Amino acid sequence: MQQTLTPVRVMRALGPLAWIGPAIVLIGVVVVWPVVVMIQSSFLKISRFGVVQGANGTDNYTKLFAEPDFAGVMFRSLVWVVAVVSITVVLSLALAQLFNQRFPGRRFARWALIAPWAASVLMTAIIFKWMLDPEVGLINMILHKVGVLDALGGADADPLGNASTAMPWLVFVAVFVSLPFTTYALLAGLSAIPADVYEAAKMDGASKLRTYWSITLPLLRPALTVAALINVMNVFNSFPIIWAMTHGQPGYSTATSTIFMYILKGSDIGESAAMSVVNFGMVIILTVIFLRVSKWRTEVR
C-alpha cells in the first residue's frame, strides 16, 4: 500500500535538520568552501596584490614543482611530523602511566602539565626564542656556564641561527606544547580500562611488562589513535612555532611546507595556492596511511 506524503510526515522527516542543519552549514562555510576557493585559486594567475589576472592552467603547479627547495621542504615536513608525533606519543605514554598512579602531589603535577597547553603557542615560541638568544638567552647562559657551548665552538653559538641545531630545538618546543593534550587523552583512555582486567591478569601470573603489552596498549588503542591522528594534523599544519623562532631560516633549512607556502604568498599567490593544495593532499594521505597502519577499525577482543 503506497503511503502519501502528508504535511505531518514531511515535517517529521525534516525535523532532524533543525539539529544538524547548523552544523552542516558551518562545515560548508568553514571547511568546504575555503577548500573549493583554494583549489580554484591554484589554477589562476593572481598578482601579489590579490588581483585575478585570468586562468593560468597548471603553470602554478609546474612552477612550484620546479622550485629548487621544494623537494627539501617536503622531506623536511615529513621528518618534522614523524619526529614530533613519535616523541610526543612515547613521552605521553610514560607521563599518562605516571599520572594514572597515586602519589603525593599528583593533583598539582596534573595542573602543572596543563600550563604549556593553556599558554599561547606563539607566546611559548617567542619565550623559547628569547631564552635561546646567543647573547642574553637564559638557556645559552646556562649552557655556557656548564661548558657545553665552549665544546661546540664558542660562547657566541647561535642555536637558532645554525641549521644543525635549529631544527632539534624546534622539535623540542613542538613536543613541549603537544605533550599536555596527548597525555590527557591517553590518561582518559587509561582511566577507562576496568580494574578487574588487571586483577584477572595478576591472578593468571602475568608480569607487569606482559600486562602492559597485552592489556593496556590494546585497550588504549582508541585513545592512542585519536591523540596521534590529531597530532599528525596539527603538527603538519603547524605555523607559529617555526615562524616565530626562525622564519624558516637559515635559508630554508627549517622551513616546512606550511612556512614555504606562506613565503611564496609574498611573491606569487597562485603558486602559494598550489602549495596549499599540495599540503591539503599530504594531510589526507598521511591520515589515511596512519589509519591503515594503526588498524583503527580492528576491535579489541
Score class of each variant (00 low, 15 high):
T246L: 01
V90S: 09
G15K: 12
Q40C: 05
A273C: 11
F236N: 05
L219A: 02
F70E: 02
R292G: 15
T62G: 15
L219S: 01
I242H: 01
V30P: 10
F260P: 06
V226W: 00
Y184F: 15
D150W: 12
K129E: 08
L132I: 01
P116C: 11
R210W: 06
M245D: 02
Q40Y: 11
D268M: 09
F128Q: 12
N56E: 11
V278N: 04
F128T: 09
V79E: 05
V197I: 14
V35R: 13
T4D: 13
S253H: 03
A195I: 14
M167N: 01
T62E: 10
L44P: 09
V82H: 00
R221C: 11
K202N: 07
A151Y: 07
W33Y: 15
A83S: 15
A244L: 04
S238F: 06
V226M: 06
P22W: 06
G147T: 09
V29H: 06
A244P: 05
M74S: 08
A174L: 01
A174P: 11
L93A: 11
I193G: 01
M123N: 08
F70W: 08
A163T: 12
M38P: 06
V81Q: 02
T183Q: 13
A163H: 07
A18G: 12
S267R: 14
M11H: 10
I46M: 12
M275L: 14
L291T: 10
G153C: 07
V84P: 03
G28F: 03
L93T: 03
V177Y: 03
A201H: 04
T246A: 04
S238T: 02
K265D: 07
Q53S: 04
P104F: 00
M167A: 09
V177G: 04
L152R: 13
W213S: 06
N56I: 10
V197C: 04
T62W: 14
A206Y: 02
V29I: 12
A188P: 07
A274V: 07
L5A: 08
V136M: 11
V89D: 03
L26T: 09
N279R: 00
R48W: 02
G72S: 14
N100P: 09
T183R: 11
L44G: 11
A185P: 09
V146R: 05
I127W: 08
